[in-house]
Amino acid sequence: MTLKRPILHYALYILASVLFQHTASAEEYTVDQKNKKFSIETLNAQVGDTVHFLNSDRFFHNIYSISEAKSFDLGSYPKGKSRSITVDKPGTIEVRCAIHPGMKMKIIVSD
């Protein structure tokens, strides 16, 4: 009986370490939208990372993707607002603005 508790504690410690390590390694990126362009053309990210899309233009933008790696519609939002996605599987996400068809970027997500 006395041996079981340390083993349980150790197992919980290992599990917590793994979970904590994963959370700690998740990055956050901000992609700006200015002058009807994205601030970056290609973003390399890993599964679990979060990408914030900030609108610094005086126009509304509507960021979306219909890629297999991630499909989303962040809706229209004005200057100063930011909306986010978390990338959850590997692949290439082609990101567009529905309003401004010239705005294009991609996120390459790896494991």
């Binding site: 009807k36 005086r58 529905a98 309003i99 401004h100 010239g102």
Partner: peptide
């Protein structure tokens, strides 16, 4: 002028359009 016609927001230079959808 954004406070007046605000036309150039979409009818932007140099072709008087940014091909945006509204």
């Amino acid at each position: 002028d954004p406070e007046k016609g605000n036309c150039a927001g979409c009818h932007s230079p140099p072709n008087f359009t940014d091909s945006s959808f509204h």
